[in-house]
Design a protein around this nucleic acid. Structure first.
Length: 276
DNA sequence: CCCCAGGTCTCTG
DNA sequence: CAGAGACATGGG
């Protein structure tokens, strides 16, 4: 077991986990346990310091994007001289854009469509408990998110019990494609445009889910998912009039360039914080 | 009973 | 191409 130590100023674990980019975490002792692939870690903050305890230190150091300098990104946001973005970046300066597994992000965000965050988490946990590999750790037992083959082994009643609703069919179709040779990990070196094209050709992956997977599953930060909250902030705070979500994405990428993904998270988190 | 949730698909004009 | 409904499920 290794214990990693970081300054909390640009690494706030609660903000990072609660800003809607990731679903496999839960409260544990003074902080949270986080599961990714077949690995687990325990993250907590004590004063100005944030600690990661894990058997996979290199993996989670990279997962939390800790080689990246977020002070520069937050300053870039503040230098935009946009009142809302400054407030958002001030609130969200501790958010890290996680480097999630591409396939897991793809499955998770297909589940996220027309769904709310507590239910998304519940669907993912139930699926994992049903067929995912069981692991044990000092933080308790946990389940790896199922492989495509494992998902195909589930009966219709299992899928119904997981609460997937009509999305179950999308997961099965994707799993079938992967089992038959589709390799979405190969997409990591593609341009954002080509990546978008390939992802949206998957049944159940539209504009928003594709953008989330591009950002959270491939860490391409010149990406800007537009959901109900971003649409709200676009209308109310940027005086936007466009209705088409793909065009709203283009508007913000044109504005924020390679920092679009980071700023999107600041804005999303800020807008939600006003009502939650 | 309604509406909503980090939408997408399909059909229609 | 834009717009309207349908779609499973659970919580408010």
């Amino acid at each position: 077991m290794t214990k990693l130590t970081y300054n909390s100023k640009y690494f706030n674990i609660a903000d990072t986990l609660l800003c809607g980019q990731v679903f496999r975490f839960k409260e544990y002792k003074k902080g949270y346990t986080v599961i990714s692939e077949d690995k687990i870690c325990y993250v907590y903050t004590d004063g100005d310091t944030t600690y990661i305890e894990t058997d996979y230190p290199e993996y989670f150091h990279n997962y939390f994007d800790l080689n990246n300098n977020y002070e520069n990104i937050v300053n870039a946001a503040k230098n935009f001289k946009n009142e809302i973005l400054i407030k958002a970046a001030t609130l969200g300066k501790g958010i890290r854009i996680l480097r999630q597994n591409s396939i897991e992000a793809l499955y998770h965000f297909i589940i996220s469509q027309n769904n709310n965050i507590p239910r998304i988490k519940s669907c993912i946990e139930k699926l994992s408990e049903k067929v995912g590999q069981k692991k044990s750790s000092v933080f308790g037992e946990y389940y790896v998110f199922p492989t495509p083959k494992q998902i195909l082994s589930l009966s219709d009643s299992d899928l119904k019990e997981a609460g997937l609703g009509y999305r179950a069919q999308y997961l099965k179709e994707l799993s079938n494609s992967i089992v038959n040779g589709l390799d979405v990990c190969e997409y990591k070196d593609l341009s954002v445009e080509k990546l978008y094209e390939n992802l949206t050709s998957i049944k159940g992956v539209g504009d928003k889910v594709a953008n989330c997977v591009i950002l959270f599953g491939y860490h391409k930060t010149e990406s800007f998912p537009v959901d109900t909250w971003i649409e709200k902030i676009y209308r109310e705070d940027f005086n936007g009039t466009i209705k088409n979500r793909k065009k709203i994405t283009e508007y913000f990428i044109d504005l924020f360039k390679e920092n679009a993904g980071y700023f999107q998270q600041y804005l999303f988190y800020y807008k939600r914080s006003l009502t939650n």
